[in-house]
Every structure is written in structure tokens, then in C-alpha cells.
Amino acid sequence: MTNITPTDTVYHFNISVPYRMCEALYQNNTPAVVLTADNGLRVQVPTSRLRHFVGSDGVKGSFRMVVDQKNKIKSFERIR
């Protein structure tokens, strides 16, 4: 669990991407994807952060991303 400070920004995402579409996460010309957070904000996330969560059914679940004041990702984790 990441230590969240008052200056951090926390984004929540519900992701459901089928396995056949996950191939794009491994292509060099796709360094990042844009996800829509639960609050409606669009956030650019490096594909390397999502690769860890690819399973036989793709990427599915609820995720949380914590970003510091300098927009550096502190954590990207599945919460459900």
C-alpha cells in the first residue's frame, strides 16, 4: 500500500479491456494510453504500468493511481 500524502492526487479507474486488444500494450509505438478516471478526467498512463495486469481475459478490474505534486506516478495498483 502506498503512503498517500495530502499533496498527492489519486485517480480511480475501472478498466475492462479484452485480451486481444492488449497486444497494443507491448508495441513500441504505443508508449502510453489515455484512461478516463471515475471523476471524468482523462489521464495519460504509461503502457508499462498496465502490462503487469494483463491476464488471460485481458485487463479487468478497479485500479488506483497515486501521483505526486510533480505528476510522477507513485503507484498504480489493482484494488478490486
Rank of each mutant, 00 (worst) to 15 (best):
M1E: 11
T2D: 10
T7L: 11
D8N: 13
D8E: 04
T9Q: 14
T9D: 12
V10P: 03
V10I: 10
Y11I: 07
H12P: 01
H12S: 06
N14L: 09
I15N: 03
S16H: 12
S16P: 00
S16Y: 04
V17T: 09
V17L: 05
P18Y: 07
Y19N: 08
Y19S: 06
R20G: 05
R20A: 12
M21E: 14
M21F: 13
M21C: 10
M21R: 13
E23S: 13
E23N: 11
E23R: 12
A24S: 12
A24H: 09
L25F: 15
L25V: 05
L25R: 07
Q27K: 14
Q27C: 06
N29G: 00
N29V: 03
N29P: 00
N29A: 07
N29I: 05
T30R: 04
P31M: 01
A32G: 03
V33L: 14
V33P: 06
V33A: 05
V33F: 02
V33H: 00
L35E: 07
L35H: 10
T36K: 15
A37S: 15
A37L: 08
A37R: 04
N39K: 08
N39W: 02
G40D: 08
R42L: 12
R42H: 15
V43F: 11
Q44C: 09
V45F: 02
P46C: 05
P46F: 02
S48K: 12
R49K: 14
R49H: 13
R49L: 14
L50T: 04
L50W: 01
R51T: 10
R51M: 12
H52N: 09
G55M: 03
S56D: 12
S56C: 01
D57T: 10
V59L: 00
V59Y: 00
K60W: 00
K60P: 00
G61K: 04
R64Q: 15
M65N: 07
M65V: 04
M65R: 06
M65K: 02
V66E: 05
V66R: 02
V66N: 08
V66C: 04
V67G: 04
V67Y: 06
D68F: 03
D68G: 05
D68A: 02
K70S: 11
N71W: 11
N71G: 03
K72I: 13
I73N: 05
I73S: 06
K74M: 08
K74F: 05
S75C: 15
S75Q: 13
F76C: 09
F76P: 07
F76V: 06
E77F: 04
I79N: 05
I79L: 07
I79Q: 03
I79P: 02
R80A: 14
